[in-house]
């Protein structure tokens, strides 16, 4: 790993699906200790970008590098140790207990043939704790409520302890308190110097990030801090709607000082 290179960097990514350019010359870098929110209308290419960044989809052209190493040069397990990825509204279901699910996050570390050691157990405990899933660790995934399920799956991602964390709509179907819990998890990760990128539908949640990327029609239209007026303009442009973005309070989600922003459609 190259010390100065960003944990994850993509240059000139292009993806064509069924004749449609889903991603067009997209370049993005995810620095350590920074949370990047990705927003944009449906079909903007957000999820595709995330799966390319995760190494799950080979771009038609362009290059993704992880800590300076080309992603395709990494062995699958090595890549899995460096990048944790949470699927959009996961198809996960079934009889497995939550703890078993979370333990899967350690798979890249001990391998398919290995068994989790004390280290792994500690990581599992920490992840369950951080996601607030300890209480239902022994229940089956299929028996959980939507919020509990999402927290269990998030804990699975945290258990990887990867320097890069990619989350595809981690707050879908969650009520306000649970959305807040997810944001807390993310800020926790960022404090541990992880590079986090999350695709978010909810603009207000996205504006809690350190940095917001606005996408539309397979391109990045703007990148900026939540208070950046140019960013606000880009958001209005891509959603083709007047959107009021205003600062409120002076406290961040985790209690630290900072401006919070709300975005609501203009009346």
């Amino acid at each position: 790993m190259n010390g100065t290179a960003p944990p994850l960097q993509a240059r000139g990514i292009g993806v064509t699906l069924g004749g449609v350019r889903v991603l067009d010359e997209v370049s993005i870098a995810l620095p350590a200790g920074c949370w990047t929110a990705i927003v944009g209308p449906n079909g903007a290419g957000k999820s595709t970008l995330l799966s390319v960044l995760a190494g799950l989809r080979r771009p038609d052209h362009g290059q993704v590098s992880v800590g300076g190493d080309p992603i395709e040069a990494l062995a699958a397990r090595e890549r899995a140790r460096r990048i944790a990825w949470l699927a959009q509204q996961g198809e996960a279901d079934g009889e497995l207990a939550v703890r078993e699910i979370v333990a899967l996050g350690r798979l890249p570390h001990h391998g398919l043939f290995g068994a989790p050691g004390a280290n792994d157990q500690r990581a599992i405990d920490l992840a369950l704790e951080a996601a607030g899933a300890t209480a239902f660790g022994r229940r089956r995934l299929g028996e959980l409520s939507g919020g509990e399920r999402q927290r269990a799956l998030l804990a699975r991602v945290l258990a990887v302890q990867a320097p890069v964390v990619l989350l595809d709509e981690p707050t879908t179907h969650l009520d306000a308190p649970h959305q807040r819990a997810v944001l807390c998890c993310i800020t926790g990760l960022v404090r541990q110097h992880a590079a986090v990128a999350a695709v978010l539908h909810d603009l207000t949640l996205a504006l809690a990030a350190d940095r917001v990327v606005v996408m539309d029609q397979g391109r990045i239209r703007a990148t900026g801090s939540p208070g950046d007026p140019a960013l606000h303009a880009a958001i209005e442009a891509v959603f083709e709607q007047a959107i009021v973005i205003e600062p409120i309070g002076r406290t961040g989600v985790d209690g630290t000082a900072g401006t919070r922003w709300v975005a609501v459609p203009a009346p």
Partner: peptide, 26 residues
């Protein structure tokens, strides 16, 4: 010996791959 791959598949195909599981061989 490869049963953890079946556990990983509970998360879905892509998630299992993101965990570095060599799905094809398994």
């Amino acid at each position: 010996r490869v049963s953890r791959a079946l556990d990983a598949l509970v998360l879905g195909e892509a998630s299992a791959r993101s965990l570095g599981v060599p799905l094809q061989q398994v």
